[in-house]
Design a protein around this nucleic acid. Structure first.
Lengths: 196, 196
DNA sequence: CTTGCCTATGCAACAAGTTGCATAGCAGGA
DNA sequence: TCCTGCTATGCAACTTGTTGCATAGGCAAG
């Protein structure tokens, strides 16, 4: 699995507690990886046991104390080893695509709201990514290696959201077309696929 | 989970055995969903228990007999119910993106081969999708509802692969740029980020 | 004729991911 | 004052997904 590697990278970029990591996994790292706090705490425990990371307790005013983790040498070595070995292409999983094909056996027009909802959510994500790009990489000429690579990954997220938006528009156009087509069929006495 | 729904859709499009489903999940359904035969057999068993699907035994020459499943009424109802409720946006998971950010703490140039490998694999997929489009949807004007929707999903796969190819080229350009930059730095007596 | 591959199904063990809950202090609004 | 929400960590139970193996007949190549 690669969650441990994602955590290593995140901790190398910036040491932090489990809670902080969980928030990052809803932000910048979340562009390409998601994880709940449960997963993170569990994996952190295992990684600490294996001496990949080390914890330092930090007291805080007005908040409970936290364990700030940083990467230890064995963790760095593990990351290097993983970087050197090939990873598999990941399979796609898209519930919405299942629904779209499934709509052929129900009412395609009923899917329009759902697709619009996804469209809005992806538009929001795109806006957040673009804002993040403006904020973090205002001048692409002055970046160090780490920032260059982070920017390249962010560009991937942006490209993904743009592509998805375009596709969802395409899907919406198809659904509207089918809806109109069916209405006209009904006027002529035909009937749609319906649900049995 | 949606594997059961993906199976329902696939069986509605065409009844089949677990083995056949497993193959479809490496082909057309595999555009947006993956599953191993183990998962499929296990879920089929549960679905049959819940009367979502029904099995018919089919003997074969020159091959073992098989159980061909079709969707029963409760399965159809379950699919309708699922289609009517909203699904969550799925989180992205991209090992390669983790590696790219991780490369900042190792040698970015060492990632070039790996990225090229992924590029080739995605180019292959794109070619397969395009060939499938030519084969299955040669005349977009004469499609029925089911085919229209299948085509829309396939267009999504095509868009995804094109986008990914473009991004991987972008990443490669970045990696080459960093490699050259570092070499020049070394000539001037500097050094790269290296590993410690 | 043996080795490997394809069809076809399945068990068992394990790894990974999700959901619900618990604790606990502090801050801010109703 | 009480309720909600944020920081912070974690257990327990459950569902999903993966890996390795087993069976078993036929077919084709070496």
């Amino acid at each position: 699995m690669a969650l441990e590697h994602a955590i290593l990278v995140s901790l190398l970029e910036q040491p932090g507690s489990g809670y902080e990591l969980a928030r990052r996994f809803n932000r910048s790292i979340g562009y390409f990886w998601t994880a709940t706090h449960q997963q993170i705490y569990r994996v952190l425990k295992r990684m600490e046991n294996d001496h990949w990371i080390e914890a330092r307790h930090v007291a805080q005013e007005a908040a409970p104390g936290k364990k700030v983790y940083s990467v230890a040498e064995p963790g760095r070595a593990a990351l290097s080893a993983w970087l050197a070995e090939p990873v598999e292409l990941e399979g796609v999983r898209h519930d919405l695509a299942v629904k779209i094909r499934g709509a052929a056996f129900d009412d395609p027009a009923a899917l329009i709201d759902e697709v619009e909802r996804h469209r809005e959510a992806h538009a929001d994500r795109l806006a957040r990514y673009l804002a993040g790009e403006q904020r973090d990489f205002p001048d692409p000429a002055t970046l160090d290696t780490g920032q260059e690579l982070q920017h390249a990954v962010l560009r991937g997220g942006i490209a993904y959201e743009r592509m998805t938006l375009g596709w969802l528009d395409d899907v919406l156009a198809t659904l509207y077309r089918l809806k109109d087509g069916r209405r006209q069929q009904e006027r002529r006495g035909g009937h749609g696929p319906g649900r049995t």
